[in-house]
Nucleic acid binder design. Sequence first.
DNA 1: TGAAAAAATTGCTTTATATCAATTTATTAT
DNA 2: ATAATAAATTGATATAAAGCAATTTTTTCA
Lengths: 227, 227
Amino acid sequence: MHSSSNCADCNCKVSIFKNLTPLELALINSSRFQVSYKAGEIIFKQGTPSPYFVCVTSGLAKIYIEGYGKNLILALIKPVDYIFGPGIYVDNRHYYSASAVEDCQACLVDVTVFKKLIRENPDFAEEFIKRVSLQSIFNFDQVISLTQKQMHGRIADVIFYLCDKIYCQNPFELTISRQDLADLSGMSKESAIRILKEFKEEGILTLSGNTLEVLNPKQLRQISETG
Amino acid sequence: MHSSSNCADCNCKVSIFKNLTPLELALINSSRFQVSYKAGEIIFKQGTPSPYFVCVTSGLAKIYIEGYGKNLILALIKPVDYIFGPGIYVDNRHYYSASAVEDCQACLVDVTVFKKLIRENPDFAEEFIKRVSLQSIFNFDQVISLTQKQMHGRIADVIFYLCDKIYCQNPFELTISRQDLADLSGMSKESAIRILKEFKEEGILTLSGNTLEVLNPKQLRQISETG
DNA sequence: TGAAAAAATTGCTTTATATCAATTTATTAT
DNA sequence: ATAATAAATTGATATAAAGCAATTTTTTCA
């Protein structure tokens, strides 16, 4: 949304940077550059080297694993959040791909600078570990949903994720495709569509065009919990 | 296996401790105590407070998420490896349970000591982040196997995991139950048993008593890859 | 604006996998 | 050693979910 010539003044700073000193922010700023991505464009590909910490400052991106014939979306990334995979401390390769779902702007920061600050600032390191841990907990929930719930429960979970964590409003404008919805919930797009239709018919939600409104969150929660 | 009165001399040290100074090891040692678990005993339960870094020095343990009616085993933990969940940097709660599969011995270390060392020793912190990252990459592989492969491929993956990562020999003595096998591969125990039987009939492996030998790793790899 | 391409939708069919029930084998405790 | 209990195995049945094909709607682009 808003860009700045300086990280110190930037109002699009990721919260993980909150413990950095002005000097440290200046270091980040000096290695930083801005990039724009059109909807659909690849930000990086699974398997390629991973030289940047990617901070999404506008739009919406997805990170996804390219599996056996289909994709699994691990998360949607909205402003102001970052993309920073586990490969950076292992072999400097990406273990998932990222692409822009809506037009995006991002700031890229050199990973060596990032790693240097992790070593030098314990508060920053601790905050980073905390964020990695939260991500891990989120992944646990996700894997349980994907492996132990039936399709209705999985779609319910994805709708709550979109409503509560991504678009943060109800009704909301669905900017991701049905295929993305399927890749988030680990099913075929046909199945995802059918279940949305059922939910409409049962009055749990409305979906006209791409505007989705959850009408009966209690029932949807019930569906999520009974699997 | 071997215990010691002092972490500095211990031959059961987890590799993550390699960057600690003698003084730091002494600090760990001072807060450490040893515990024995019989096969089947719970080490800790999902949802409970998480005050210890658990280092498994003998036997075999499992960490598993208690989901909707069934469990998902995230990993088996063998000597010398540690159990240290993401809750420690979040809300000090366990996000998975742990129990002994074989009789186990473990050293428990106070998490506050662990966290203190993470702040004070950047090499240790970096090594820890690296280990967390490796864990995360392993989980990615696991979730793709669980969500995108059919049962044969998932069982193949679990057999490779057991053979290459846990028992580290072929043939090996299967010390986990069929239910554990099912909880590792996200299916019912009946299905797991049926697929093992098929693999036997096709000459891919032998399984007499609980001794499993992979006879045709190439074909098993093929099955793993074609899903 | 209109044609072409892509995305979404729907019905039908097939299949992978769970569930249930019964039986056998192995383990534990008296 | 033997009964009691738990684990493993097997077969039969039910069903959740994918795949396929056809159609409609939406989007893109010349």
